[in-house]
Simulated scan of single mutants.
Amino acid sequence: MAPYLKAAIGLVPVFSRPDHLPDTELERRGVAVDRGRLAGYNRVCGFRLTDALPPTYPHILAFPLATKLMSAANFPFPVVGVVHVANRIEQRRPIDAGETLDLSVRAVDLREHERGRQFDVVATASAGGEEVWRGVSTYLRKERKGGSARGGDRPEPPAPSARWRVQPRAGTDYARVSGDHNPIHTSRLGARLFGFPRPIAHGMWSKARCLAALEGRLPEAYAVDVEFKLPILLPSTVAFSAQPQWTFALHNAGSGKPHLAGTITA
């Protein structure tokens, strides 16, 4: 919770911030996987208990570096004021839990968006000098209203292959195994402060849960892109669907409103 409390100071107008991304790359070398934490993560996200890291797990290992980067005084936006709108993972090969990894994180490509500004946080994991994993998280800083409407004529969602009940504790469970204690996921009060009637599920939990549903059917090396749509309010029932050409999606099981859309490329 402490990084988010520190970052919240940036929401106070008296604190000025630069209008450009810092030319900073944070690194952490020789990172070993805590197998107990990995097992807890696998259980929360639905992965099998194996020695291979889930494709989303290096994101968890790099998350402290990303939080440190975005919480710094020279970062243009407070971390609690940005929205995670998309994520791309490139898994170059399977990663064994016994490997030690060198991690790096940097922010790039600050750009205009119809609702504000966007930027990417690029994280990499290397083993033996070889990059084995890369993640690109796209964040939106909302600065104006308008943009593409989320309602209107929405296509009928595909027939679900599974329905999942996302329990009220999903936010706190994922925070425990991931280290992401953003209060919009763990606190009813924190969620209300940012306009949500109750806590919402982490976007990276929803991505991980979808990939867990496809476990055993994916190639050893692939890229997976997702766009995060409407948040999953806790609790909720969601419908998962996957197509043979490796697209997948999450929708609200009752209303059909979209939560996530993803694509896998070998």
Rank of each mutant, 00 (worst) to 15 (best):
C210Y: 02
L193Q: 04
T172K: 09
E156W: 03
R28E: 15
T67F: 03
R115S: 13
K257V: 05
L110A: 15
A201F: 06
R192N: 12
P55C: 07
W205E: 03
R192H: 11
E99I: 12
R28M: 12
A39N: 01
V83E: 10
V177A: 02
A2T: 13
P55L: 10
P235D: 09
A261G: 10
A253F: 05
L260A: 05
S255L: 07
D23H: 11
E25C: 07
T67L: 15
Y174V: 07
I95Q: 11
L214T: 14
Q118R: 14
D102A: 04
F47A: 06
R106T: 11
P235W: 13
R93Y: 09
G30C: 06
E215T: 04
R115H: 07
T56R: 06
T172P: 01
R35F: 07
T186Y: 05
R163G: 00
D225Q: 13
L211R: 00
A191Q: 07
A261W: 09
E227M: 00
F248E: 03
V121R: 12
V166Y: 06
E25T: 15
A127F: 10
Y174W: 08
Y139L: 10
H185T: 01
A266N: 13
D102Y: 06
L193H: 06
L21V: 13
R134V: 14
A62M: 02
G129S: 07
V122R: 13
V80Q: 13
A221H: 10
E114W: 00
G81I: 05
W205A: 02
V238C: 02
V33Y: 02
L234S: 08
M1Q: 06
G147Q: 07
P157A: 05
C45P: 01
V122N: 11
Y222I: 07
T138R: 15
N252V: 06
K142N: 02
C45T: 11
L5C: 00
